[in-house]
Simulated scan of single mutants.
Amino acid sequence: MTNQNQACTKSDIAGVSFSIHPMSNAFITIIKNALKEADTSKVHMKTDDVTTTVRGKLVHVFDVTKAIFLHAAKTGEHVAFQATYSLGCPGDSQGDAFMEVDDVPLNADSVKDIKQQVAAKFSLYPLGGGDYMDVIYAQIEAMKEYVSVSPAHYSTRLDGEAFEIFQGLEKVFKATADSGSSHTVMTVSISANSPSHKVEGSDA
């Protein structure tokens, strides 16, 4: 039975639980190829029948998820991505074997030239007290440096290149954690190559 009164421990281990859904009969091939193309040697990664979990340094957690999404989306098929990123107290007590690696992202060069327009929504949760709404509003403003930002119910919408959206999400997540949030959580939904994008962007 879990001890609900367990004391928080400081941890720099970042993590994400994500699912990727190619809307294609070839979804198994698309997912397997994306996982194969992404270099995951600097993170701990485990996939079960519901989600894939990645743990390690923040820079590598974002590097790997960005690469997996872009390799899947570059097929031209409609791909949906759902993720919950987390860092902080209560800290991750396992999977810290990869914290000694350097900060050089292994997938940066292989995905930087993949051009992929996407629509995304994200919600940021700086937990642990403080002026959390001020922190959230500041990071929403910061995202405007990278992509188009607009309000949405229960989240903030982002439109632009997938690479730039992931870059922005990583920076605002890190800035929130560095601002004093003892536990930072961010939920992200991204859609690429959706037929509805074409309908919305048509002149018909």
Rank of each mutant, 00 (worst) to 15 (best):
N3M: 05
T9A: 05
T9R: 09
D12K: 07
G15V: 09
F18A: 11
P22N: 06
P22C: 07
A26G: 03
A34S: 15
A34D: 09
L35S: 02
K46E: 15
T47G: 14
T52Y: 05
T52A: 07
G56P: 03
K57V: 00
K57E: 03
H60V: 02
D63W: 02
V64A: 05
I68Y: 01
L70A: 11
H71P: 08
A73P: 09
G76A: 06
H78I: 00
V79D: 08
F81P: 00
C89P: 04
D96K: 09
A97E: 15
F98M: 15
D103K: 08
D103T: 10
V104L: 09
V104Q: 10
V104Y: 10
L106Q: 13
D109F: 00
S110D: 12
V111W: 04
V111R: 08
I114P: 02
K115Y: 04
K121P: 01
L124H: 10
Y125K: 10
P126L: 02
P126R: 01
P126D: 03
G129R: 03
G130R: 07
M133C: 09
I136N: 08
A138Y: 01
A138T: 05
E141I: 10
E141Y: 11
A142W: 04
V147C: 09
V147M: 06
S148D: 11
S150H: 01
P151W: 01
P151S: 04
A152S: 15
A152M: 11
A152C: 06
H153Y: 02
H153S: 04
D159A: 13
F163H: 13
F163Q: 12
F166K: 01
Q167N: 15
E170L: 01
K171N: 12
F173W: 07
K174L: 11
A175Y: 08
A175Q: 13
A177R: 10
D178L: 13
G180K: 14
G180R: 12
S182H: 09
H183V: 03
V185H: 03
T187N: 15
S189M: 10
S191F: 06
S191L: 09
S194I: 00
S196L: 04
S196Q: 02
S196A: 05
H197G: 00
H197T: 04
V199R: 10
E200T: 02
G201N: 14
